[in-house]
Simulated scan of single mutants.
Amino acid sequence: MSEKALSAVEAELYDRQIRLWGIESQEKLRAANVLLINCRQLGCEIAKNILLSGINSLTILDDAVVTEEDEIRNFFLSSDAIGKKLAEAVLQKAQSLNPLVKLTADTQNPSEKDVEFYKSFTIIITTIIKTDLLLKLDKICRSNNVKLISGDVFGMFGFSVADFLKHDYYEDRVQMLGKKRSHDGSEKSTVQVEGLIEYPELNKVLIFPNTKQSVEAIKKTRRRNELFFLMLVLLEFRNENARNPEITSKEEDIQKLKIIKNSIVELYKVKENVFEDALFELIFGEVVPVCAILGGVIAQEVIKAVSHKEVPINNIFLLDPVTYNGKEECIGA
């Protein structure tokens, strides 16, 4: 990727964040071409944050038609958008956040896109897609050096999973100069520390019943948060039903979730109460404040992945639906 030098207008617009993460990181962001698959409640939060960061281009790929619920929860939409293609309807308000970013709408079904389409991006962000498409995308990304992050919100629960390939980064660390004060009274200096994280491919992270992939590596992981298994149950529900659990069929869907939970427990050989069934009461809908939190986290990880500054999450982020604490898990490595 070739970084683009910032213009005087860009340097002025992005002055505050350049002070935060440096002009070198901002130039990397300025060269980044980002694809966002699906721009619903979580997607619009992600889009807002990465548009403001100053990327080169954002393509929104979404074949949905705007519903009344979308219009209420998506701040990029107005009442006259109902019935229109969502990807096109969000453009005007999204573009107003940052006129310097090239913003494009694509209304084709993501599963119908060919490999060439996906190869042109620096990083791909997905929300609300089935796992088979996500794993297919991950293979394409790995073959073409494109980074990938996926996230979802189920009620009060949110998570993200990333494959940033072989990711090198640097971070600024403060180091003490010693006991003796320097001439200006300072006892500290800042140094750059380099690091490297090798992310596992997602078919070693997201493994479900009735697949040929082995779970032995994950079973050997010493610390597996209970919410990791909740994430698998919810993703498998979508895989089997082509939708998320819905409040209109709450009781029926909870029974389906319990059956899937039992199959996950059997696959991973964990205790039956690996998480309490009461959590199923908290996973309906896309709760807007949760979307805002997770959207900020995912956008932050995109900025880290593109700029190569600061340590990214390796490789799963879990937002606890009870305590609202964020937890990082390394799975499949």
Rank of each mutant, 00 (worst) to 15 (best):
K271M: 14
N144E: 10
P209W: 03
R73T: 15
I72L: 15
I125S: 08
T107G: 00
I331A: 02
E301M: 03
P99N: 15
L133F: 08
A31R: 04
V153W: 09
S214V: 02
N144P: 14
Q192R: 12
V161Q: 06
I124G: 09
E24F: 08
D163Q: 06
Y169R: 06
V274Y: 07
E236G: 03
I254P: 00
D70Y: 09
N56W: 07
V311E: 03
V274G: 06
A292G: 14
D172P: 11
R30W: 01
G178H: 04
L91T: 05
V146S: 07
N273F: 05
N325I: 11
Y14G: 04
T67G: 13
E68M: 10
L319F: 12
D277R: 00
V205P: 08
N239C: 05
T107Q: 10
E226L: 03
E194L: 15
I264N: 00
M156S: 14
R243T: 07
M176E: 13
L148H: 11
L20T: 07
K48S: 03
F275Q: 00
G295Q: 12
S57N: 10
Y118R: 10
Q255L: 12
L58Y: 05
R142W: 01
L61T: 11
Y170R: 11
L196W: 01
L13D: 04
T211A: 01
I123S: 11
V191E: 13
E71Q: 08
Q108R: 10
A89P: 05
A87H: 01
Q41N: 05
K261W: 00
I123V: 13
K204E: 10
V34I: 15
L97P: 01
E310V: 05
H183M: 01
K166V: 14
S25I: 09
L177P: 03
K309L: 07
R243I: 10
F284P: 15
N210T: 08
F280T: 05
Y14A: 07
K166D: 15
E27Y: 06
F76H: 05
E116I: 02
G178P: 04
Y170F: 13
V101N: 07
Q300L: 08
D253C: 10
Q17M: 15
N314A: 11
L77N: 11
C44L: 14
E216Q: 12
F76V: 09
I50S: 12
Q108V: 06
V146H: 04
R238W: 01
A47Q: 05
V270M: 05
H183D: 05
L35K: 01
S307K: 11
P200Y: 07
W21T: 12
F229A: 07
K219Q: 14
D15N: 14
Y14V: 00
E171G: 08
G185H: 05
N56D: 14
A292W: 06
L318D: 02
V153Q: 10
F157C: 03
N262M: 05
I140F: 01
P245Q: 04
E69R: 11
A8I: 08
L282P: 02
A217H: 04
L134K: 01
F229C: 00
S189N: 08
V265W: 03
H308K: 03
S120H: 02
R73H: 15
N98K: 13
R19S: 12
